[in-house]
Design a protein around this nucleic acid. Structure first.
Length: 550
DNA sequence: GGCAAGACTTGGCGGGACATGT
DNA sequence: ACATGTCCCGCCAAGTCTTGCC
């Protein structure tokens, strides 16, 4: 576990120097011609109230501005920004008319799109300058890219799913809110003129450069390094090494939990069934959440009775469990799987005398589960199973799907299919792209055209042969290749309609498996990883040979 | 030993940069 | 040169797990 760690005392660095964060630009009041109307009459708002009003005005096209909770939360927070005079006048959100403001912002964004090349270039250069000045730090002896050096601008909190806090005001972050972390002997970042940092500290047991507390959940936000940095790369490597250690003992652990299904103790049975789900279905751990603070979502340990249904028989299968719940980001998990009889009987037992809203595993939580896992293997936690099962699935699928005589595009289709198997396992879904149908149609048109080209070329070839002229075979071959490429593209896109590959690629698949596969089949790594991904996985690209085994 | 705070990883989405075709 | 389509990246949120405190 310590092989990747630079220091043994738990410190993460010796030297850290940076320029601090970039703050959101200050609020620019609206031109006088842009009006806000209350109860049909124009009303000039104070700057603070106007700013918050613009947040709402910008969102008018979104469905959520019609939602009760959103409106209620917004109005409550908006009123806090009003002068007492405004407060007494503006008492009903339904009497507020933001449409003039909304149109103004639409025009603004249209104007931005219509900007000349020179103007766009100028903005680009300014961004580049900011990046050069604030986007890097020195950690130990290396210049490293910072992940998020810009402070999030104020706005209305949306959240995902049915969030009880949607519409609340996310307040502006000032230098006085920021804790700076750097090394004592570094050139300290300067707060903007006339301001002060909340605190400057020298804590080399953590990796962040700056932090502040946000006002919606009261949680801490951080400025940290980019995934390409040494500190993130080593951590990532360590994660996959832990997953590989699980590979060595997963059989033992599986036997153990199967055994535990028979335990006399309820808590052990629950633990064993939960672990089986985490292993087999790649469920997340499922920490407890504070009710009313976030959307109602669950993971394995927090599953409730209402989230599963048991079917002793379903079609030709026995002991089927149906899962239906909202997981992380309120993404629906729906699955029907046959389980061992013992698991089924246990589930029936866990459900006895319970209400739909009761916990399925009432004697279990993530802390108990992880404590148990820690005893089974050093560094083992619930999420290691997701990493392990994702990576081992990719490796197996690649072995199974790659055909040595396939062309490069066909091999890449196989890679994407292997990746897809993992994404499905991890339930990484996406909304079908808005332009999906159209883009499929376009592709089909191209395929048809190509087919026509091909038959034309073949006809030509036949004629040429009859005339004993030089062969045009090369031409049809080239067209055939292009056609095949298009067909592969169409298949890939269709299969990927509702699947998101990015998350598993970035977070769950040991990059050395992909690097080895590329080397083995002579696929350029650029076909699998884009520039950002190659930077993040530089360690693996350096390290893995074609015979690498996860 | 339980709980809140803290630190860090994982997640989907949309806008805009960039590529591609006409 | 321009329109259109694609993909990347930043945004910002939501998880997991550890640490620290009473």
């Amino acid at each position: 576990l310590l092989t990747a760690t630079k220091y043994t005392d738990g410190s993460k660095w010796r030297f850290l120097e940076h320029k601090g964060p970039v703050f959101a630009p200050p609020y620019e009041p609206l031109p006088d011609k842009v009006k806000f109307y209350y109860d049909g009459k124009p009303l000039k708002l104070s700057a603070p109230a106007e700013e918050v009003a613009t947040f709402f005005a910008k969102m008018l096209d979104h469905e959520y501005t019609t939602k009760d909770i959103f409106r209620k939360n917004f109005f409550k927070d908006w009123r806090k920004e009003m002068t007492s005079e405004e407060k007494s006048k503006i008492t009903d959100l339904n009497k507020c008319n933001f449409s003039d403001m909304n149109e103004y912002f639409k025009a603004q964004s249209e104007a931005r799109k219509q900007m000349s090349k020179e103007e766009k270039q100028k903005i680009k250069e300014e961004n580049e300058r900011l990046l050069q000045e604030y986007g890097f730090c020195i950690m130990d002896n290396h210049k490293e890219r910072i992940g998020n050096f810009r402070i999030e601008p104020p706005g209305l909190f949306r959240g995902r799913g049915d969030h009880p806090k949607m519409g609340m005001l996310k307040r502006r972050i000032r230098p006085e809110d920021i804790i700076i972390n750097c090394s004592k002997d570094s050139k300290h970042p300067k707060p903007p003129p006339g301001t002060k940092w909340k605190e400057v500290r020298y804590d080399n047991k953590v990796t962040w450069l700056a932090s502040w507390t946000e006002n919606i959940q009261g949680s801490i936000k951080y400025i940290m390094l980019n995934p390409s940095s040494r500190i993130k790369g080593e951590k990532d490597w360590q994660k996959y090494e832990t997953a590989r250690r699980l590979k060595k003992c997963v059989d033992r652990i599986r036997n153990q939990y199967r055994d535990d299904w028979k335990s006399k103790e309820m808590r052990i049975r629950q633990r064993a069934v939960a672990l089986y789900f985490i292993d087999k279905l790649a469920l997340r751990a499922g920490n407890e959440k504070e009710e009313g603070e976030t959307a109602d979502t669950v993971g394995c340990c927090s599953l409730r009775v209402e989230h599963i249904k048991l079917y002793p028989k379903m079609d030709d299968q026995e002991y089927v469990v149906e899962f239906d719940f909202l997981g992380k980001d309120s993404i629906r998990y729906y699955n029907k799987i046959p389980v061992e009889k013992r698991v089924f009987k246990n589930l029936q037992l866990f459900l006895e005398n319970k209400q739909p809203e009761d916990d399925l595993f009432d004697r279990l939580n993530t802390s108990i589960l992880n404590k148990h896992l820690q005893e089974l293997m050093d560094g083992l936690t619930a999420k290691v199973f997701r990493t392990y099962n994702a990576s081992i699935t990719l490796q197996q699928q690649l072995k199974e799907l790659t055909c040595s005589d396939d062309s490069i595009p066909a091999k890449i289709l196989s890679y994407n299919r292997a990746n897809r198997a993992v994404a499905i396992l991890c339930n990484h879904q996406r909304a079908p792209p808005k332009t999906f149908e159209k883009s499929m149609q376009n592709l089909q048109t191209k395929i048809d055209e190509k087919q026509n080209q091909l038959s034309a070329a073949r006809k030509q070839l036949k004629a040429a042969k009859a005339d004993h002229k030089a062969s045009h075979d090369d031409k049809s071959k080239k067209i055939e290749e292009q056609l095949m490429k298009l067909q592969v593209q169409a298949t890939d896109r269709e299969e990927n309609k509702q699947i998101a590959l990015g998350t598993s690629k970035l977070n769950y698949l040991d990059p050395r498996i992909s690097v080895a596969w590329c080397k083995k089949w002579d696929i350029p790594i650029e076909k699998i990883y884009n520039k950002t991904q190659r930077e993040k996985f530089a360690w693996a690209i350096d390290m893995a040979e074609k015979d690498y085994e996860f």
